[in-house]
């Protein structure tokens, strides 16, 4: 079945089985392995990407359902020219990652949060990432990183 999808501003056309999961389209067909998966039941959120500007768990979306849509993954966070998104900078500065497996999904949700809510409280940050499991950080430095990014972006105007 023909899938036409825009990923990180690049258009792709692929013929796939209807049952192909979006996460596998990204990873196996398009080679975008920055998006991970950690469960089969849409609990862990490692596979979180943007579908039409909204974070979704790509292990529970069929690739064919995304046809005609735009997808943004962690590979699309960097600006052209390699400038990092403020969240990427803040995660590095605040030690917001350890094994790095949950990080892409966390970054995508955090970017969405800050785009809608530039000054989130810690509770709002925690709620936003509550569908995404991290086994390394105890969430503390992820929350700090997101708060740091919010402060930096506000200060930069």
């Amino acid at each position: 079945m023909r899938v036409t999808v825009t990923v990180n501003d690049q258009d792709y056309i692929r013929d796939v089985e209807p049952r192909l999961l979006l996460v596998h389209l990204l990873r196996d067909e398009l080679g975008l392995t920055g998006t991970h998966w950690g469960c089969d039941t849409s609990n862990c959120g490692a596979c979180t990407v943007w579908l039409d500007r909204v974070p979704v768990k790509s292990c529970t979306v069929l690739a064919v359902m995304a046809s005609g849509s735009s997808v943004r993954t962690v590979e699309g966070l960097e600006r052209r020219g390699g400038e990092l998104d403020q969240l990427q900078v803040s995660f590095a500065l605040c030690h917001g990652l350890q094994c790095g497996f949950c990080t892409p999904g966390m970054l995508m949700t955090a970017r969405w949060l800050l785009d809608r809510l530039p000054d989130p409280s810690d509770v709002e940050i925690r709620e936003a990432i509550s569908g995404q499991t991290c086994r390394c950080t105890g969430y503390e430095n992820i929350v700090r990183s997101i708060r740091h990014a919010a402060e930096s972006e506000r200060a930069a105007g």
């Binding site: 768990k57 529970t60 949700t109 709620e127 936003a128 509550s130 569908g131």
Partner: peptide
């Protein structure tokens, strides 16, 4: 209900 990302879909 579930979590914010699931609720988006």
């Amino acid at each position: 209900i579930a979590d914010p990302v699931v609720r988006n879909r």
